[in-house]
Structure formats: structure tokens, C-alpha cells
Design a protein around this nucleic acid. Sequence first.
DNA 1: ATGGCGACAGGATGTCGA
Length: 280
Amino acid sequence: MLIATWNVNSIRTRLSQIIDWINQVNPDILCLQETKVIDDSFPIEPFEKLGYSVEVYGQKSYNGVAIISKIKAENVKKGFCEGNSDEHIEFFQDQKRLISADFHGIKVINVYVPNGSSLDSDKFDYKLKWLNCLASFLDEQVKQGGFICLMGDFNIAPSNLDIHDPKKYEGEIMASKLERNALKNVLKGRLIDSFRIFEKNTDHWSWWDYRNNAYELNKGWRIDHIYISTELSANIKSCVIDSLPRGNIRPSDHAPVMINLNLDDINLDLFEDEDDFFEI
DNA sequence: ATGGCGACAGGATGTCGA
């Protein structure tokens, strides 16, 4: 099963490129971020024509997430809705940055983490609070049992290996200790970075700034990630960043990232107490 | 380089992203 994530920076501007990519790669599940459109205006038909179902959670101009899937999404949830106090939900619900759904017993959580602007900005405070809320949300999902796939645009380079020039950006936005610790607190060791299962010590980027010829100079960051329950690590056959779409005419500034997950030999014993899993 | 580049809303140019 191919599961992919892509910050497309406007679904309407990038539509034909996304359709081309789907035709070429044939993913089973594609999580999108920065769709930048209200739900009523999301172009659902081009995906349905290819046999996909579409779940959207968007808003005007900013943010917006969606899940495109061949398998029908079960238990779709939009925004933070569990494991968080009502005031948290209230605080975060105006920015559409999270959608989750179950597929064959795997809970797919698609996130667009706030950028945060700079460390002295109110937006940075919002980013850390949002990540803390995500940690609580994830705690609740883990409690419910089942495998988890947490993916999307995290706007954080987990280590200096994920930045083309770590010295230049040391301690700055997307590279700070505070953000990295907030991300670690989300993962809590129970989820692992799929990409680093295969690429232990290599430079690969998922985002290149539109400015300063960054893509041509290959000056990028790896800020788009697919985290998966540690129990599933043996089932991941590959994790690849497809950088080619970044070279398109009028590209997104992000590249798609995907994993190939083998579900054939998943150990169902892990879920012997989870009736929900067997109903699917 | 307090600038780059691109999308958006709106109908010029400011805001936002990363």
C-alpha cells in the first residue's frame, strides 16, 4: 500500500500536476496540505474520476488539508476533537490543519503544522501550543489502540542532517531546540520517522524555497515527514521523497513523500483487545 | 539582502508562507 503526503500550496493552482502525479505513482492514500480552498470549492471530481474518495477540511486562502484515497475513509475526524479540552478545540478550530481517518485499521493523521514565522513571534507561540495539542490528541489515539500513521508538513527539521546549511539556520525557525523538543513530545518514541529507517546519514530535502534559485542549487530542508507506529517499522518497504515535481513549471515548493507499506504480515495479535480492528 | 518568490483576495498592493 502506497501512502503519500504532499504540501501542494493551493489545490486549484496545482490540480493538473497532482492528477499527473497520481496517474504516474498510483498511490492508495494521498494526504494534502495547504489546499487553500473552502470545502465547497474543492475540485473533488477529477479525483473521483480516477476512482478516489476525497475528504476535505479547508478554509479560504490559508491552510486546508485533505485525504484522497482509493479505500473509503472510515471514522473521519476534522480538527482536534479528542484528548483535548474544549478550550483547546476552540482556540485551534479557526485554522484547518488536521484531518484523520482510518484505513484497514490504520489511523492516518494528516497535519499541516504552523510555520511559526520566527522565534520572537506570536505565531511561534501558536506553533508550540498547536504541537502540544497534537501531542494530547495523539495520546488519546494511542490509548484507543491500533496502528498510527502521522504524516504531513511539520515545518520542523528534526535534526541538522535535515537542513542544507545547518550552521546558517542554527536555532532559528524550523531548526530550534524548542520545536524539535515539541515534536519529540508528540512522537514520544512510539512513532518513528519512516525516512530514517532507510536513509541513516544522507542529505535529502522535501522543501526548497521559491527564492534564490534554491531548488536548482539544491538548498533545501526535510520538513515533510511520515511517522509510523514502531510496531510497523518492519512492514515499511520503502520511504521516498519524489523531488521531480519540484522541477515542474509553477511547482509547489514542497515535494511529495511516500512510503510503501506491506500489510500482508501485520501482527494482528497486537490488537487482540481491539474489537474495532477486526470489524474492518 | 527586513530582500528574494508565489498564492491569495480583489481589482493595487498587502499579507502570508518557510
